[in-house]
């Protein structure tokens, strides 16, 4: 019965080696994704270089599910630019167009008013209570480029978490079962 034990140990050792191999390849995928994201952050200077449009407020320019590429350079903010901003007390950043700019002479600070192209009203109603202008600290980037529809996957996954788990599970299974 010695040969059975031998086979078992040899199979076990193969599985261990394979498992290690797979852990490393999963680790590689995760770390390279992280490196790309952080690298983009360095190049663009924005804390979130890519955003997905979630609302219809910029129709027909940007629709739900479109992807925007952001940059945050030292250049001053000017009317007409599309900026992404965060308001205290809101977790989702907003993508709207600047319609008014007042730039201080002494400090160079700006007061900015924004509005969605598809909205009737300007954004004062969206700002924090009592807030009338956006300052530079609220703005996390300006949109420089655009790719249509690519962000739909993210929207579907955030709205239907089940699909996300199925997809992640399937991918994990694929990585584990693949012999390569």
């Amino acid at each position: 019965m010695g040969w059975i034990e031998d086979t078992v140990t040899s199979v076990k050792s193969i599985q261990l080696r394979q498992a290690l191999h797979q852990t490393i390849s999963i680790g590689l995928i995760v770390t390279s994704a992280l490196m790309i994201w952080k690298g983009l952050m360095c190049i663009t200077g924005s804390e979130s270089p890519i955003v997905v449009v979630l609302s219809e407020s910029m129709e027909p320019g940007f629709a739900r599910g479109d992807i925007l590429f952001l940059r945050m350079s030292k250049e001053p903010i000017r009317a007409g630019e599309i900026v992404v901003y965060n308001i205290n007390g809101r977790d989702i950043p907003i993508v709207h167009r600047v319609i008014k700019v007042h730039e201080r002479k002494d400090t160079g600070e700006v007061d900015v008013l924004t509005k969605g192209d598809n909205n009737e009203e300007d954004d004062i109603g969206l700002y924090a209570p009592g807030q009338r202008w956006l300052q530079r600290k609220h703005i996390i980037g300006r949109a420089v480029g655009f790719l249509p529809h690519v962000g739909w996957a993210t929207i579907i996954m955030t709205e239907k978490p089940l699909i996300k788990y199925i997809l992640l599970g399937g991918l994990g299974l694929l990585v584990i079962t693949s012999k390569d």
Binding site: E103, G108, D117
Partner: peptide, 11 residues
């Protein structure tokens, strides 16, 4: 007070 004022009038 301001080096630049930009006020959108029509779009």
């Amino acid at each position: 007070k301001n080096a630049l004022n930009q006020v959108s009038l029509w779009d």
